[in-house]
Amino acid sequence: MAVVALKPYPLRPVDGIEHYHGDQLVYWSWDHHLMFAAPFITCPSPSTRVVDFLEATIRPLIAADPDADRVDWTCVEWIRDHEPIAIDVGKSFSENGIGHKDLLRFRTPGMNTLCG
């Protein structure tokens, strides 16, 4: 469908990767862990190793959850756009094919202290 307009109304996205100074947006959400009100928005460099970013940025963000210490990034189940995907956390975002504005959900079955 297209917007109904009096004159041609072009599609002009304002959020492309070119606006992020070489970095890209990646969203994160920990399934069934609702202590964190919404998915996180972050802005890593595509060449960063995923595990480095997880340890430096995501782990501190989720630290307040009682399950946080037990999260092992190599064991979590990853979901992107409602499909399971394999992520080699030792490799970079771009090597894993993780693109601008991807939402990465991770699941930790058996861990649900707060929101079970």
């Binding site: 469908m1 917007v3 109304y9 002009r12 996205p13 304002v14 959020d15 947006l25 928005i41 802005c43």
Partner: peptide
């Protein structure tokens, strides 16, 4: 949004803008 994508893709998204600097 699917109905009027031209309109919503230009929205000023405050969190995204923070990362755009």
């Amino acid at each position: 949004v699917e109905h009027e994508p031209e309109k919503y893709v230009q929205a000023w998204m405050p969190m995204n803008q923070l990362f755009q600097g």
